[in-house]
Design a protein around this nucleic acid. Sequence first.
DNA 1: AATGAATGAGCATTCATTCAT
DNA 2: TATGAATGAATGCTCATTCAT
Lengths: 221, 221, 221, 221
Amino acid sequence: MKKSDENPKERIFNAAVVLFAHRGFAGVRTREIAEKAGVNIAMLNYYFGGKLGVLRAIINESYEKFYQAITDVANKDAPREERVRCLVKNLIDFYRSNRELAMVGFNTLPIDIPEMLDLKMKWITEYRARMNKFFSQLGLDIHDTVKMSFMRGMVCAILSSHFNMRFIYEHITQVAGGSKRQPKKTTPEVDLKYDDAYYKSFHELLSTFYLNGLNSVIEKG
Amino acid sequence: MKKSDENPKERIFNAAVVLFAHRGFAGVRTREIAEKAGVNIAMLNYYFGGKLGVLRAIINESYEKFYQAITDVANKDAPREERVRCLVKNLIDFYRSNRELAMVGFNTLPIDIPEMLDLKMKWITEYRARMNKFFSQLGLDIHDTVKMSFMRGMVCAILSSHFNMRFIYEHITQVAGGSKRQPKKTTPEVDLKYDDAYYKSFHELLSTFYLNGLNSVIEKG
Amino acid sequence: MKKSDENPKERIFNAAVVLFAHRGFAGVRTREIAEKAGVNIAMLNYYFGGKLGVLRAIINESYEKFYQAITDVANKDAPREERVRCLVKNLIDFYRSNRELAMVGFNTLPIDIPEMLDLKMKWITEYRARMNKFFSQLGLDIHDTVKMSFMRGMVCAILSSHFNMRFIYEHITQVAGGSKRQPKKTTPEVDLKYDDAYYKSFHELLSTFYLNGLNSVIEKG
Amino acid sequence: MKKSDENPKERIFNAAVVLFAHRGFAGVRTREIAEKAGVNIAMLNYYFGGKLGVLRAIINESYEKFYQAITDVANKDAPREERVRCLVKNLIDFYRSNRELAMVGFNTLPIDIPEMLDLKMKWITEYRARMNKFFSQLGLDIHDTVKMSFMRGMVCAILSSHFNMRFIYEHITQVAGGSKRQPKKTTPEVDLKYDDAYYKSFHELLSTFYLNGLNSVIEKG
DNA sequence: AATGAATGAGCATTCATTCAT
DNA sequence: TATGAATGAATGCTCATTCAT
């Protein structure tokens, strides 16, 4: 279809990201990927060695970009608030720029292939280490594994869940297209536009929410 | 395989829940479901009208149980803290009792079939209405759609994300089985046991975290 | 195509024998087998587990029938001539009744799959043992491995080669069909008919030839 | 892989001979031939016009060498024994020097392509003529088509069958490699070494065998 | 209710070949 | 000559479903 300026390998990669995000790895046919990428099916095997090879590339890319986002979280001696705000901002930016990539990389159910499981495990272990370091620098006792695990999860829980829901909601309304009537409004709410202004507010709310939550958890017990 | 005391229909349902949770709808074959349930393949079509029928039943069941959990959240005149604590408790209980069911119902990527999309949409709309009501009772301005949407998402973001991660982590370590070495410990952390004690702490932390976050958001602006 | 009285499994087996004999295992497509057998392609996998499974079944059957043919070779105390004539007769009968089966079983190039190689090896070892016993009963020194190996090979060399050549010749003239002109006769020879009369003569000639050859080899040295 | 001193065309030819011999024409991929020859895939089409072109070249070469072997069979007035011994020697030498070439040329199942069938037919017709001439010079009645056909087939039956079996046996033991235990010895036989000494004995045995068989056939009736 | 054989569309992948360089 | 990316027609096999019993 689209024969943009990208090379065939990139076109396959990008097409697969979008399709996997919307219908899951097993729900997408190689032919669809090739068609969307505007290349011959055989090229998919030529460049990636098969459908699984494309997924592997996507997972790696998604985690790499994600770790870049959580690596640069302000000077380690900066005040707690600044560091948290920075982390939240980075994560919002990451998710906004890599919606579908993150969808695939994080949500793809772990295919029961040892190599794929090792890959996931490697990235999860890495994530744990970085977040543990971050929170201990913020004053959380590194030996309080329950709190540490709690806060570690909270970080991307909030973000991933927001984008997950937004993604699903948009997917439904898009795909359903014309055949779908607007959902009946049961409240005086208008559909939100997920634009810069929205994410400015979102950043404010989330930083505030998270910071107060974090403070209360650290101070507790 | 297992020919427990349940009837064939229930056995199919339960087998499908587990398989869909671990490998996604498209990644599971009807034969597997039938084998795991210990019934003939044709029974699946007989009772549910096909693979999609099983998914429909699962989604319905998962949302129904979920709404039960968020419906009974203490007397509407009870203090904010009590109501939030109650909500958090209900949700934790729901997820702990229905791990795989929730996994399938909430995470299954919306199959591009109108009927399936309508189903999801119906439940999402319902959820919005209930949460809007809940938060407006807690003092959040029902016309502040950004804040409302933010808090609404936050509720299950935290829970679903925690169980998501736990699920994936356990899946990886289980499936990988003997071939997997334990992930190298980069911090003095021991593997957590997700038992009653853990979820007591988790409930404490989450309620505190959420309550403080909520307060700051309501007071802000 | 043909929906004879045989059951689907037998029809697949027989269709595969003919096709493999004429074009080799790798040169035949599963679809062709299914079409020739008049069954759905999926039945091939259902009954034999795949293309390779069909080959396995054919190889086993061909060797089993072959060993039946070389097992009953007259009373072990009968005179040498009678025993040789009996062996030759049995082999001629075997090849005439199982032309294509033998073609596939004996000529299929050993697929490089351990299981397939083991199968071939098992049958070859068995054949060696039976022939060694037969010739030692006829007076050949069992320790003269060169002579033993020579005579052992000679037995089916003559037969297999005859039927091989006949098969190839008939294949060429058949397939080439109308488009082929008759080969130019360079000698006053008419095409032979491979009927009962022919094989009566053939049996006579071969027994005589083989017996005299055998006698000379045994007496030598 | 191997970039010996031969030119690319020869390297392709030789690589194809080995591969076709072991796995059959249809069982070999052009990529393998190119890789084994150490050339680019496109060169195969460049030099031979395609996979079939390579086979054509091999078949022609194999028959040409074969006819050279049966052409020079001692002075036509030499005694019967000398001529037979000479023929046997020539054929043994031919097969020993051109094992794989003969394997492909003679055993490749006739591809159902008119051109390929014509090729085979041409060579077979030629072979018949030469052998008829040879045997009539030895005293066999040229009009006794049954005997003539019998002796004609016998000539290479014995040789081709021996090398066929040897080839298959060696292939199996080689490929199976380490994973294969030696076949259980059921007789006090040691594995034969197919060296010069072996083929000296083989020549003796075969000449004797064949000569006595031939004599008995000529004298009979 | 239950079975297992049967169906045909569809799956990822591989193939020999060609083309632009 | 030589290369490696590109092609499209297959290839063996699997799938959810249905049917006769």
